[in-house]
Design a protein around this nucleic acid. Structure first.
Length: 259
DNA sequence: ATTGTGGCCTGCCCGC
DNA sequence: TGCGGGCAGGCCACAA
């Protein structure tokens, strides 16, 4: 599913659209426009404007224009397609097909090219002038001090806090499980319970996991990923893996080495 | 304020 | 072979 690694791939794809002028907005699905945004309002705001940058904060893709910025969200099944080319080919939990009816939003440029979001399950959305301050520091560049302050003083489970986009932006379910598995930390522990020594581990493993899975090609390429099924065992020590809901999400962890 | 829960979206896979 | 139930997770509304 699109976590920050996939959205970063989308950002790189969208960067090719920098310099193009938005000739028309296609918004066939009003559900997909968030924050009370109407299609007419969106058209009036960005048609005729030029794309000047493609940025990312967490899982949010930002298209800066000479007018207001556009915020693109992908949920877990959204795919960015530019000129018929997808930013990510293999999107786990989404369909491998591409059906035109799944195009929930698109920009048509003056040179007849087109940037579209194909999203079978309509879990993504489009925002006009998103408030970036609603998102915490980006997980790929967060500092140790920033991560520490995102965790201390909280009674929420460690995993829930890591996935709270207002505290740390970009960590989804798979990345959270993978980094905690690597860090040897129990996802259910209260975030604020970590001592000074333990607090260093999430940061180190977050950075390492993001870098490594980025090179491998996405958030689904973790070492724990193949073991996310019933009756499986820890790839590190062979112990039976535990499965439960933590932070509202299906969570897999190793009771033998994650404490 | 913080934390937890349930619902939304819909394609796909498994078992009958 | 078709069908129905369960499942996936990002986000939001809402409750305690």
């Amino acid at each position: 599913m699109p976590e920050l690694l996939e959205v970063e791939a989308y950002r790189r794809l969208a960067e090719r659209a920098v310099g193009r002028v938005i000739a028309a907005v296609e918004a066939p699905d009003s559900w997909y426009l968030k924050g009370g945004l109407a299609a007419e309002e969106l058209k009036a705001a960005v048609e005729g404007e030029k794309v000047i940058a493609a940025r990312r904060r967490g899982k949010l893709l930002l298209l800066d224009t000479t007018g207001p910025a556009l915020g693109l969200r992908f949920g877990m099944t959204g795919r960015l397609v530019l000129d018929g080319e997808a930013g990510v080919e293999e999107l786990i939990y989404s369909s491998r097909r591409r059906d035109p009816k799944w195009d929930r939003f698109a920009l048509r440029f003056g040179d007849s090219t087109r940037l579209a979001i194909s999203d079978p399950r309509r879990l993504g959305g489009v925002l006009l002038d998103p408030i970036e301050a609603h998102l915490g520091p980006d997980a790929a560049s967060i500092t140790p001090a920033q991560l520490r302050s995102a965790l201390v003083g909280s009674k929420a489970p460690l995993k829930a806090r890591l996935m709270d986009q207002a505290r740390v932006a970009g960590i989804g379910n798979l990345l959270a499980d993978e980094m905690l598995w690597r860090a040897g930390l129990d996802p259910r522990r209260s975030a604020g319970e970590l001592d000074a020594n333990e607090l260093r581990r999430p940061h180190r493993h977050l950075r390492a996991t993001v870098a490594e899975l980025g090179e491998r090609g996405g958030s689904h390429t973790g070492d724990l990923m193949p073991a996310r099924s019933r009756g499986s065992h820890c790839p590190r020590d062979g112990a039976a893996l535990a499965r439960d809901t933590v932070g509202g999400r299906t969570t897999w962890w190793c009771p033998a080495h994650q404490h």
